[in-house]
Amino acid sequence: MAEQFDAVVIGTGPAGLMAADELAQAGHSVLLCEAKPSVARKLLMAGKSGLNLTKDEEFDELIHNFGAAAEWLTPMLREFDGAAVQTWARRLGIEIFTGSTGRVFPKVMKSSPLLRAWLLELDQKDVQRRTRWRWSGWDGGALKFETPDGSQNVDASVTVLALGGASWSRLGSDGAWTSLLSGKGVELAPFQPANAGLLVNWSDHMAARFGAPIKGISLQAGALVSRGEAVISQRGLEGGGIYSISAGVREGAPLVLDLLPDLEEDEVAQRLTRPRGKASLANHLRKMLKLDPARIALLQEFGRPLPQAPQELARLIKALAVKHSGLRPIDEAISTAGGVAQTALDDGLMLKKIPGVFCAGEMLDWEAPTGGYLLTGCLATGRWAGRAAAQYLSEP
């Protein structure tokens, strides 16, 4: 006999945990299933370098970072915006702080204390968890899972899918669910890398700069502009500044760096006209413009032969075109664009083709930069889907 629950949530990332939380809060029996041996692996990985929970800013500024999906996600994020994320974290007993750029972190910086507190709360609400349970579709009306004990079926009145995108497959987001939904006629947008590093075939002299941070720059790809930082890696460029404009690069826009975004071109040119004497060009750039070795290396890498005329050199410094080989492969991206299309869902994130099945998190066709936006979007859509599923259960 198949087990029976009011609701089954498949996927234990932030969206899945939030959906399970909402369903249990409404008084429903909930089974939470995870294909991996442990839950929330991507959330734990994100916390290794400091868990950026959200961004403390006005809603209009926050929603702008969700690009083409902003209008679709607006009602969900209005109900669970950056302020709401902070309130939720404090309710779990997590002390938080806001950095100088508005990014919000737990004081301990790690994600594990927050996850432990959240799982304890779900346990207290009697949410049952199963790990190593991989969803393999439907057996008639029942959900079918491949488990260490063989194939298992579960009957549920509603299902929330929070299966992630197609990046970091070793952490659980492998996109294998797409065939199950497309087979039911669900409209999907193809996956593409988002928040991805840039591949660059460096010349040999750049090896000395591998690992160097690039600060004090502006990056632009099409309409996307960032004042974030980047890092020179052996394979190219990565870091928050690159990730936030990677969607523009993906769409074919050239990537241009402004190495001195706080100075106008004429001011840069004027400083370059000062006598150089016997100083090397690198020393001249360092003294006159306060360019550090990392930015000088980029200028020489992408701008050689450097123009001698101050105005032309200033123009190059203010708009340095980056020669690259595209974005890193999709499995190396932090997140993905693509997934379940908006047109496949109703206003409650329920699949039109499969009544009673809801979707949330990165498996939906939206993208947002790191810096708190991505996690906020996952939490907000998980909460929205969980509440809609609870409402669906309460209807005759």
Score class of each variant (00 low, 15 high):
residue 62 L to C: 08
residue 62 L to G: 01
residue 63 I to V: 11
residue 63 I to W: 03
residue 63 I to S: 08
residue 63 I to G: 05
residue 63 I to E: 06
residue 64 H to L: 15
residue 64 H to C: 15
residue 64 H to E: 15
residue 65 N to C: 15
residue 65 N to W: 07
residue 65 N to Y: 10
residue 65 N to D: 13
residue 65 N to T: 11
residue 66 F to A: 04
residue 66 F to G: 08
residue 66 F to L: 14
residue 66 F to P: 00
residue 67 G to W: 05
residue 68 A to W: 08
residue 68 A to C: 14
residue 68 A to V: 12
residue 68 A to Y: 10
residue 69 A to K: 04
residue 69 A to G: 07
residue 69 A to L: 10
residue 69 A to R: 07
residue 69 A to M: 09
residue 69 A to I: 06
residue 70 A to Q: 13
residue 70 A to R: 12
residue 71 E to P: 07
residue 71 E to R: 14
residue 71 E to V: 12
residue 72 W to K: 12
residue 73 L to T: 03
residue 73 L to E: 01
residue 73 L to P: 00
residue 74 T to H: 15
residue 74 T to V: 15
residue 74 T to R: 14
residue 75 P to E: 08
residue 75 P to N: 10
residue 76 M to V: 13
residue 76 M to R: 06
residue 76 M to H: 04
residue 77 L to C: 05
residue 77 L to D: 02
residue 78 R to L: 12
residue 79 E to P: 02
residue 79 E to H: 08
residue 79 E to D: 15
residue 79 E to M: 14
residue 79 E to R: 14
residue 79 E to W: 05
residue 79 E to K: 12
residue 79 E to C: 13
residue 80 F to Y: 02
residue 80 F to Q: 03
residue 80 F to D: 00
residue 81 D to I: 02
residue 81 D to Y: 01
residue 81 D to G: 07
residue 81 D to M: 04
residue 81 D to S: 06
residue 81 D to N: 08
residue 81 D to H: 04
residue 82 G to P: 01
residue 82 G to R: 02
residue 82 G to K: 02
residue 82 G to M: 01
residue 83 A to L: 14
residue 84 A to Y: 03
residue 84 A to G: 09
residue 86 Q to D: 08
residue 86 Q to P: 02
residue 87 T to D: 11
residue 87 T to S: 09
residue 87 T to K: 12
residue 88 W to A: 06
residue 88 W to N: 04
residue 88 W to R: 07
residue 88 W to F: 13
residue 88 W to V: 08
residue 88 W to C: 10
residue 89 A to T: 09
residue 89 A to V: 10
residue 90 R to H: 06
residue 90 R to K: 10
residue 90 R to W: 06
residue 90 R to Y: 05
residue 90 R to E: 11
residue 91 R to W: 11
residue 91 R to T: 11
residue 91 R to M: 13
residue 91 R to E: 10
residue 91 R to P: 06
residue 91 R to H: 09
residue 91 R to I: 10
residue 91 R to L: 10
residue 91 R to C: 12
residue 92 L to E: 03
residue 92 L to Y: 03
residue 92 L to V: 06
residue 92 L to C: 04
residue 93 G to W: 05
